[in-house]
Design a binder for these strands. Structure first.
Lengths: 203, 203
DNA sequence: AGAAAACATGCACAGAGTGCAAGTATGGAA
DNA sequence: TTCCATACTTGCACTCTGTGCATGTTTTCT
């Protein structure tokens, strides 16, 4: 129940990871992603070439957000609701996602930097979309668990895809907007897209 | 109106491209994508290392389908329909896509091979999703032209995303299925997903 | 305290992708 | 037909990404 005491090792690892990320984003912002070499990043972050690839499997991975891991309790609770009308499942799923966003609000500056890079550099975009894709399949698996279907079945895949569409579109609008205040959140944007989605297709 | 006489040069280029693709897919099917080097492909296709990268900017690009280019007349006709209820625009857009599929039916064997590779090799999946993403932005632009909005606005992006979701989901189901007969088409699958989408969110 | 596991690092290497320059084939014009 | 401009192919040399392996160091657990 309580978060396991984070050992020194884990903390260092998290810090190092964040330092590499920050260095990569800073340098990419200055010189452009393709002008930045891994060596420059490792120098800036003060780690070895080899350590960089211990944390990130590619250069792109260092500048894109890893898809969030949803808390197990939430996922279990969702799955326990059991079969229902697809519309209701989709609503529950998006609600779950929104709750997660509310609890772990993404950093706007990092997201903005990542999206800006993705717009200009296809490899970064590819890495980002791959992350979204992996997360979408993960969601499809969760939905399938709830409905007792297989993750490869059409309905779970479609529901997950719709939830991801709302999430992606909303996030995109969020980062495109000028920051209103300091502690703004993508939540209202995603919620608005969900509404738009309903009025678009819904009755 | 009539297709411009295809010069020898263009034909050779198309053939070479196809030969490289075929060689890449064949070798990747045999040894696995990551065990295949560009050199192996060039040897098999009988072109130089440098020529390979003249046709494909990355090794991944050689094994994924380039997003189709929609015929200008169709696109213009679509745009000329002018603003309408989003639901109607989405219906027109998917109809346009289905018509294009019907006219240029994708080769099942190649699609199957590509999807199989994408399932096992993240870089291939990333390249494929990047292609879909580019096509989706292209569609958003078309929708924006029709409605007089900007391609970055939320409604065009969302409509394009929904159309792509239907297309992707349908295609995925299609390739997953065992080939019923020789000349089967992904069309009915995509149509079924569209219906599912309507009953899922619709009235 | 000491063993075991996790981690960082350096080294060497295969392979991807690019700029450049030279050669070859094609389309078009005279 | 002849000749030129252009497009395409190729080889070469090079930078950079990403990986296997061996070694040393730090943390955790008992």
């Amino acid at each position: 129940m309580t978060r396991k005491k984070e050992g020194l090792r884990e903390r260092r690892r998290r810090e190092t990871r964040q330092e590499i990320r920050a260095a990569a984003l800073r340098l990419a912002g200055e010189h452009g992603f393709d002008k930045v070499t891994v060596e420059m990043i490792t120098t800036e972050a003060d780690v070895s070439h080899r350590t960089f690839f211990n944390y990130f499997s590619t250069k792109e991975a260092a500048v894109v957000q890893a898809p969030p891991k949803l808390p197990d309790e939430e996922v279990d609770a969702f799955a326990a609701l059991g079969p229902a009308h697809p519309r209701e499942i989709l609503a529950d799923l998006t609600a779950l996602l929104l709750r997660d966003i509310a609890e772990q609000p993404p950093r706007r500056d990092e997201f903005h930097a990542t999206f800006a890079l993705a717009r200009e550099h296809p490899p970064v975009l590819a890495a980002m979309l791959a992350g979204f894709g992996a997360f979408e399949r993960y969601l499809a698996g969760i939905v399938a668990t709830r409905t007792g279907q297989r993750a490869e079945d059409e309905a779970p895949r479609l529901i997950a895809a719709l939830a991801m569409t709302a999430l992606k579109t909303g996030m995109e609008s969020w980062v495109a907007e000028d920051p209103k205040d300091e502690n703004d959140s993508p939540m209202p944007y995603v919620e608005r897209v969900m509404t738009l989605l309903r009025t678009l297709l819904g009755h």
